[in-house]
């Protein structure tokens, strides 16, 4: 017994190192699996507060571009009202909540922290549980999709960006109904990949990619980006398409959170309780 205690005391530095190292490895591995990184994230009171006060200052440097984006969006919405929804061919009309008979609830949020350089990128927004934001809500801007909320605190929420190797979003070609998954290979922040598109799909350079209707998170038809180039997989059955997102992911400020009010019902239907 004495010897064990002596051993611990003699090697306390190495033992502490090993202990802390394994704690951090455990945290890392936990953060690699979707929906499990609960403890260490930027959507808590402390880090959220600091990011919020910092973004209050840095917002002023960005006012001009953000105003232009908002004016552009107003312009689109105005022409929508004046011309009637039918004559508008851009898919922005699909975001309009009225065309869904109130199936979707929309609220605005501001990005207070944006990362896009590592292979697992997250954003922090300034809406949280007290505003009715929960996990698995969609986040978009006026131009296209941003990501999915994966963690919330009282006043802030963390968004799993489309620039995250963990992200998989159901997407399709606008011209046909061939669906695939939107993923990211971490190579460039200006390019995401659409995989598993059938080789029979009529893909052309410059085609528009939109969200598919198969997920209960995103409404169908929210714009994602344009086809940059595409290759047939080694197996020869599916295309992998390089997509250039409409959103400049490096410059985000005003976003919309979309809540599908039917999500609960759809989920229950798809996963019936086994008796």
């Amino acid at each position: 017994m004495q010897q064990i205690i002596n051993f611990v005391i003699r090697n306390k530095t190495s033992l502490l190192f090993l202990l802390l190292f394994f704690v951090s490895i455990a945290l890392t591995i936990q953060s690699h699996s979707y929906h499990k990184s609960k403890f260490i994230n930027s959507a808590n009171f402390f880090t959220g507060g600091i990011y919020e006060s910092a973004s209050n200052v840095s917002n002023y440097f960005d006012l001009k571009t953000q105003n232009e984006i908002l004016v552009e969006e107003n312009n689109k919405l105005r022409s929508l009202i004046l011309n009637g929804i039918d004559s508008m061919d851009t898919s922005i009309s699909k975001i309009d909540s009225t065309s869904y008979n109130g199936r979707y609830k929309i609220q605005t949020a501001k990005v207070i922290n944006n990362n896009y350089t590592s292979s697992k990128n997250y954003l922090t927004i300034n809406k949280g549980e007290k505003h009715g934001v929960t996990e698995d809500l969609a986040v978009i801007t006026s131009k296209g999709i941003v990501g999915i909320i994966d963690n919330t605190s009282n006043g802030y929420a963390r968004v799993l960006s489309i620039l995250n190797t963990k992200s998989r979003i159901n997407a399709q070609l606008q011209s046909s109904n061939h669906i695939g998954s939107l993923v990211w290979n971490a190579k460039s922040s200006a390019m995401v990949q659409l995989t598993d598109i059938s080789k029979f799909a009529p893909v052309k350079q410059g085609d528009t990619i939109v969200t598919g209707g198969q997920s209960s998170i995103f409404p169908q038809g929210i714009p994602i980006g344009l086809v940059e180039d595409f290759i047939l997989d080694i197996s020869g059955d599916t295309y992998t398409i390089n997509v250039k997102p409409f959103n400049d992911m490096t410059n985000l400020s005003h976003t919309y959170i979309i809540e599908n009010l039917d999500a609960q019902e759809i989920k229950q239907l798809e996963n019936p309780v086994n008796e």
């Binding site: 704690v23 951090s24 591995i29 690699h32 260490i40």
Partner: peptide, 28 residues
């Protein structure tokens, strides 16, 4: 010193949403 380094890494992890990556590197 080792404990402080761990805390340093953990705080940076908190801010950059990276799990325990920085903490592991700092401790090492």
């Amino acid at each position: 010193f080792i404990f402080l380094s761990f805390m340093l890494g953990l705080f940076v992890d908190l801010f950059s949403d990276s799990g325990g990556v920085h903490a592991a590197a700092c401790v090492t």
